[in-house]
Design a protein around this nucleic acid. Sequence first.
DNA 1: TATTGGGCTAACT
DNA 2: AGTTAGCCCAATA
Length: 422
Amino acid sequence: MPRVTPAGARLMLDHVLGDPSVPAAAVDKLLAALPFPSDPTPRLLRAVLLRRLAADPVSESSLDTLQLLASLPAPASPIAAAHIAVAAFIAASASDFDAAARALFARPDGRARLAVDEGGSPALASDEVIATVDQFEAAVGNSFSQTVLRGLWGDRSATEERVRELLAAEWAAIGPSLLVAAAERIVGDGAVEKWRAADEATRAKFCILAGEENTREVLGKLEEPTSSANPISTPAVEKAIDALKTSCADLHSVVEDPLPAAKAVADEVLAARLEKGVSLNAEEVRGQPTTCGTAGPSAPNYKDKGPSTGKPHNLMDWNPTARTFQWEESPGPESSESSLRRPHLPSPRRAPVSPLPPLENKNRRRRTRKWCLLEEETLIQGVEQYGSGNWKDILNNNPDVFIGRTPVDLKDKWRNMIKPIM
DNA sequence: TATTGGGCTAACT
DNA sequence: AGTTAGCCCAATA
């Protein structure tokens, strides 16, 4: 089994230890199995301290723990109360009150005093706390005061209660783990921008992490027009946008075509996938991107319920017009218009369009997205593996490839691919 | 619910 | 104007 990397251990511990519902026994096993990170997250540190405190709420060492907790960023509010309660209990319950009180509260080096006085932790200091520290200091050698303080602070269960209150507040405020925060960035608020900025490979990872349902939702939002982006839509604006598009097209005609590079990347990914033993190989794919070495005499059985009757079984016969394109770029300026009013080059169909969009009440049609080479090849393999018609199986087994596609999309694409040449 | 076939339309020649 | 890939819808199993 591959070893857990320090970074992986850090993420796991941050996630698991920070979950108060995970029992101490499980935490102990995890800590024994994983290396403790050299740069633990504040959440992990907090979780470790809270668990240590829960196991040993009232003692000299819990005083250490409380002081460490106070040094972490954004401590919960009851920490000062818990800290002074523990310190006071230790002194009040000591057989030698004077010695204990001196060690804890006397100027200048009393341990609790150092923690709450000027220069100590602001999280542990308050007027009330300072007053208590002063009372204990003043009680050294004063048996009456000692009796009073023992009565006030000598109750272990009350002290423990203060610590439990602190624990509850700290756990409630511990916040999400790094993993949860990362997941939130992928599927929660702001996910759309994250996905929009991601390249294809990163999106494939997001897809796996987010799950099918979330992926579909985010991709849906991604392609959704943002109505506020271009609230003004006039003929003049549309003309200007058309002009921009034209100049972009002109620019593309003189700069290097990015398609070959994108295709090379796609081919590499495909070749890696095919190393599992499928008969296609990288050379074949590179040499003839729209054909498939698995076709021919041993062509897959497109039988079953598939639309195979009278259709070519040799993949060399693929409809040559079923062309392959690069992935579309992330939605550009176009996506900011309503798809119904999206500006584009003049089309005969658009000429008679009424000023009142007839489809206003219908669901918006998804933006057309060309199929990339990887999708086509994966579809072919999927049909070989699962059979034509099992579109959902094919889709579910290639979620990192068919991003934003539905089973019906796969069916339609296959229909196009096996369509006879007209 | 998943799949299918017919039909529609944006995008392109 | 014609063609096609991609998408939608309603029927069906």
